[in-house]
Design a protein around this nucleic acid. Sequence first.
DNA 1: AGTTGACCTGGAGTCCACTCCAGGTAGTAT
DNA 2: ATACTACCTGGAGTGGACTCCAGGTCAACT
Lengths: 167, 167
Amino acid sequence: MAYSIGQVAQKLGVTVDTLRYYDKSGLLPFVKRNAAGRRVFTDNDVHLMQTIMCLKNAGVPVNEIATFVQLRLQGDASLNERYQLLTDHEQNLQAKILDLQETLAYLQYKKWYYETAVAANTETIHFVPGTNEVKPELAREYQAHLKATGQTEELAMFTDVVDLPEA
Amino acid sequence: MAYSIGQVAQKLGVTVDTLRYYDKSGLLPFVKRNAAGRRVFTDNDVHLMQTIMCLKNAGVPVNEIATFVQLRLQGDASLNERYQLLTDHEQNLQAKILDLQETLAYLQYKKWYYETAVAANTETIHFVPGTNEVKPELAREYQAHLKATGQTEELAMFTDVVDLPEA
DNA sequence: AGTTGACCTGGAGTCCACTCCAGGTAGTAT
DNA sequence: ATACTACCTGGAGTGGACTCCAGGTCAACT
């Protein structure tokens, strides 16, 4: 099967311009042209582009993906390097996911803050009386709330975040 | 306790320039100045900035954070809106984490691809004999491998990704 | 023969989030 | 007194990833 740039764009959920930009940037050196100079994508090309989109998604910058693609062109000699690159990015991604999970926990704490404030019709329930400052023990109250509702799992992650400001 | 911009920058792990950029962008309207015109951050300011950094981390663009901060200045009247905003971003973040977990699963598949290729000293073990095209059944082989090594959890996520190219 | 519509190129423009000046002030250390 | 450092402003510059445009080719339809 052969596809035009428009078909591939649709399949991958990006614009035609984006694909041409990727080509310019050296991400698609394997794509052939027909007699009229138009790009013709094979099934295998699309398959390779899956991996490229995956790296994109993982936050790998375009020029690094380009080096990966370049390595691919060098054949078996570059297998080790490519494996190394993938491993590095896997660890980056894993770290990023953990980080986002902490961020999520903090966001949920803030959500609880507003849930309770909305219920009380005022934010002042969280303030030190007579000020606009948030009670220092509020994070602990939240943890108690989590414990009470049996959500122990997020507790550990959350304490990490809460401990930061004390540093 | 009061802090200078430099101290806060260090505490939050960003540069002084970045904090000034945030201020310019309307993220820090609550920060007061001393007689000499220098920014003076209170503990409470730093606490608020934690939330700002959290939203940053969650991928919320600066101007949206600015509207959140603006809402805060309007007091209790904006509680509902702020809660809504946080909830939206919580869902975005949750979706993003799921997406990254899928991406991770795909990356791990590729890692396995290279692990086995490196062990065989050639990538051709994964090709349709006589071509440079990856065997279509390779994803299934990987799933069998996952099952064999008892890693059933990632299997479901991974099939999602693998099914995409067939669309 | 003429009109679409999808494709092509080189290159300019945009958006975002910084990042880096130049030129100046204020407080401290020697 | 002078040197140093941390701070200030407005504004220019950067890098990344697109996004858009002018001007052109090609195949298909009417």
